[in-house]
Design a protein around this nucleic acid. Structure first.
Lengths: 227, 227
DNA sequence: CCAAAAGTGTTGGTAGTACACCCATGA
DNA sequence: TCATGGGTGTACTACCAACACTTTTGG
């Protein structure tokens, strides 16, 4: 039995959402071979003395300028030939942000960092298309048993933003009235006294915000949300 | 930046169930240092040219004699100090079997392989207690959205076995009549013409079996089972 | 005045829960 | 005949789904 020679990397699938552009994902353009100048998930090799979580946060920050502290482990990919040169197994992580909250800033191994709409994805390096696909499915499943809006939406938002988020993730329209009843009953949303500005058309709606305490409590406990 | 020197292992958490002993887990006694003579999850280093799945099936078979072909990935553990000697990250897998279906057979790195009741667990090597804990939580969650009985029960079983399985995983009694209605409505159980033999006491019940086709269809599709 | 989006309540159906008594067997 | 576990039905409740008209704003 030969001595083991496998490297370990981490990759981050970071989703963002805005009601204009819909769901998008953060990608970087690779500076180095293999897949030079190709779009890829942010990520890279784990250092000898850092944990997987530290590695993924570091790589994400280095390559894109984004800092998030709740990346959740998604899956580990280990096919022997997934990297054309060495054997590399990759532990993929999954995170959610509001894209407006960060200014993208590529450095180290990345030429560029950019949000891509999930509807207009470029070809991806390695098996990153597969990783992204799994992450998307996980997100779609997640909204059924955990609240996800707080991470994806801005601090204050009109109710319709949450509705659009859900209907776009579920891939089907939701009934506005029933959806609102269901969400409000969960008790983590608070209606503010302000109204939406700049609405391009129609009657402006009230703004809402998440009550963090009950939101995270529910995130712990989970719920059961079949639309 | 130093050259990366990390090893990759796989570990298997294999659960078994029988109505007499309840839920149990397959452990092996280590032959080698570190944690010599300690109980541990079956597992070991991934070889250079095998996939993670191949590795975990191979290790499980080598160390315990058990062969299962649907191990599902659970989580990857990568704290820098989780192995006292080298840095090793471990990809944990998760499987379900009916313990009667296998004769345990330790070899290679294992002195012994044995089923342990989840109520009488020994101390475990490395961070295997943590891995086992997570696997158990996953199993508890799983029964709410996927059928799991087929893998854990024998070919034919009295209905009460399934009920005991669920109530022991859920940690609370279930109403016999409502549980039966709910399960039967899912349509993957078939009542046989035979009755239970050797029942230590009471009226023997009919035996049931899983209709594999609809069982696996439902496993794909998922369901929504809040007791 | 028109278009666009927001706001809101009622009803009918159904699925789930609670609940108790009788039956078959072995000792 | 007793103890043990198996088998079964009903009624009430609560939640969910379906559904349409009115209001506010900008152009």
């Amino acid at each position: 039995m030969s001595l083991q020679d496998i490297k370990v990397s981490v990759d981050a699938v970071v989703f963002g959402y805005s009601s204009q552009t819909g769901l998008s994902v953060l990608l970087i353009k690779r500076k180095k071979e293999p897949f030079q100048h190709c779009w890829a998930l942010p990520g890279g090799l784990v250092k000898d003395n850092e944990s997987l979580e530290e590695a993924v946060e570091r790589e994400l920050h280095e390559e894109s300028g984004v800092s998030i502290n709740y990346l959740e482990q998604l899956y580990s990919f280990g096919k022997p030939d997934r990297d054309p040169r060495n054997r590399v197994i990759s532990v993929a992580y999954f995170g959610l942000v509001s894209p407006e909250a960060f200014t993208l800033n590529a450095s180290t191994d990345a030429e560029e960092a950019k949000w891509f709409s999930m509807l207009e994805l470029p070809d991806l390096a390695f098996d990153h298309a597969e990783i992204l696909d799994l992450a998307f499915k996980r997100l779609q499943g997640k909204i059924r048993y955990e609240p996800v809006g707080f991470e994806l939406l801005t601090e204050k938002f009109p109710f319709s933003d949450l509705e659009k988020l859900y209907s776009s993730l579920l891939g089907e329209p939701v009934d506005r009235r029933n959806f609102k009843k269901k969400i409000m009953k969960l008790g983590f949303l608070e209606q503010l006294d302000e109204k939406q500005q700049l609405s391009s058309a129609g009657r402006p709606g009230f703004l809402y915000t998440f009550n963090k305490e009950s939101y995270f409590e529910l995130k712990e406990k989970g719920f059961n949300f079949w639309v």
